[in-house]
Design a protein around this nucleic acid. Structure first.
Length: 420
DNA sequence: AATTGAGACAACCGCGGTCAC
DNA sequence: AGTGACCGCGGTTGTCTCAAT
């Protein structure tokens, strides 16, 4: 014979607690102390489950809870502890007096995870770059993410139901000042309209737009101009700057291709190929644009799709890389996070790829996302299969080894950055 | 003025270990 | 010793809010 159940579970109220319920619970606990959660609701005159009462008390009504926003110091503690402890919220909370595990968990999920997500997501969780890119673009596109002035309602009597503004910088003057941003080489659209256009093209161009298509109207979207500040690329006739990725024409024709994300077999993993290509075929934008093989003789921005092996990633500083004479210059935009606060990661932006040929610049990116999810480093058979369409030269093996070394190095860098 | 959609967070759900009966 | 509720925890969901459209 065990204990009696904590409550009857029928006819009990669920959902948000009212001020009256809070008062009843508080008064009861002040008079009788904590514990006896099973009998508490009945004795306190509450139509709540004992478990619910306990949660409400622990998380919101207990007297020793700290109020207000998480401070920078607390945030740093959370980040550091999470790096070593993982999602053990109660353990993390024990290092932050007055903070509850639930509060820290919520804060992590809503504030910190996105910022650090790019460094931490396990390899086997990644989605194709193309999908993630689209998602990131959508995130930046609308809703409160649009530089909203967030007002947090703290629904708690002891918090006096204060509204704490967590104001985000409004994008009034997007002149490319990234002094407080860890996103390098990405500039914000000048106007909301430009932003809309930029972000629309992020989705449309990245996911759907086939740069190899015959539709020359679409090509107009990729009027490129060097960015005076960074040497990067201004994308679009609207002057939006973004990162630019130029892919092999072969890529789009492949099932499950980067430019054809909906089809194909998983084994035919274009992302790994794509990443390999990045590593091996980096070009500066200028290199591409100045390459007459890549451009129409009249200087039109329309791009030649006749080549075979070209693959380019560019933004920000001029990248060192190997220039191949027979580059295909298919383009899709990988526009990064366009929010102005610099909080959100921009891992999919290759402006930040830290390889031997890239300037790291402290930008938020994820090597696992770039390399791990689809290119399982160390899986030589898979790598060979993936690389076969790109290169069948003897360079392949040593390049793979170099990639592996770089990946390991950058993972360490990422962890050091997190812990710093 | 109405709608949309995302951030923020309160609250619920379910699991596993512990402990009262 | 067995049973089953209690407790604590982490994951998930639902609701609210508000800027942008």
């Amino acid at each position: 014979m065990g204990r009696a159940p904590c409550c009857e579970k029928v006819g009990l109220k669920k959902g948000r607690w009212t001020a009256e319920e809070d008062e009843k619970l508080t008064k009861y606990i002040q008079a009788n102390g904590e514990g006896s959660w099973r009998s508490l609701p009945k004795n306190a005159g509450l139509l709540r489950c004992g478990k619910s009462c306990r949660l409400r008390w622990i998380n919101y009504l207990a007297a020793d809870l700290k109020r207000g926003n998480i401070s920078a110091e607390e945030e740093e503690i959370i980040i550091n502890l999470h790096a070593s402890l993982g999602n053990r919220w109660s353990l993390i909370a024990s290092h932050l007096p007055g903070r509850t595990d639930n509060e820290i968990k919520n804060y992590w999920n809503s504030h910190l995870s996105r910022r650090i997500y790019s460094f931490r997501r396990p390899v086997n969780e990644r989605q194709p770059l193309i999908i993630e890119t689209a998602k990131e673009g959508m995130l930046a596109k609308s809703g409160a993410g649009r530089f909203a002035i967030k007002k947090k309602l703290i629904s708690h009597p002891q918090k006096d139901a204060i509204r704490v503004p967590t104001k985000r910088p409004r994008k009034e003057n997007n002149t490319g000042d990234f002094s407080n941003s860890n996103v390098e080489g990405i500039q914000l659209p000048q106007t909301p309209a430009a932003e809309k256009n930029t972000l629309s093209s992020t989705i449309n161009d990245t996911v759907i737009w086939d740069p190899c298509a015959e539709d020359k109207d679409l090509m107009d979207l990729v009027v490129t101009t060097p960015c005076p500040e960074t040497g990067g690329v201004m994308l679009g006739s609207r002057g939006e700057k973004a990162n630019l990725v130029i892919c092999p024409s072969e890529e789009r024709r492949r099932p499950n291709s980067l430019l054809n994300p909906s089809g194909g077999e998983k084994e035919n993993d274009s992302f790994g190929q794509f990443c390999e290509g990045i590593e091996n075929e980096m070009l500066s934008f200028n290199e591409v644009m100045m390459d007459k093989e890549l451009l129409d003789p009249d200087g039109d921005s329309s791009l030649n799709d006749e080549g075979q092996n070209g693959l380019l990633v560019h933004s920000g500083e001029r990248q060192s890389g190997v220039s191949s004479p027979d580059k295909t210059v298919n383009v899709f935009e990988s526009i990064g996070d366009l929010s102005s606060n610099g909080e959100s990661g921009d891992w999919h932006s290759f402006s930040s790829i830290s390889t031997s040929g890239f300037d790291y610049g402290g930008v938020d990116w994820n090597w696992d996302d770039v390399m791990g999810g689809h290119l399982e480093i160390g899986d030589e058979t898979k790598e060979e299969n993936m690389l076969s369409w790109l290169w069948e030269s003897e360079k392949e093996e040593e390049e793979t080894q170099r990639l592996e070394d770089v990946a390991n190095c950058d993972k360490q860098n990422a962890m050091l950055w997190l812990l710093s």
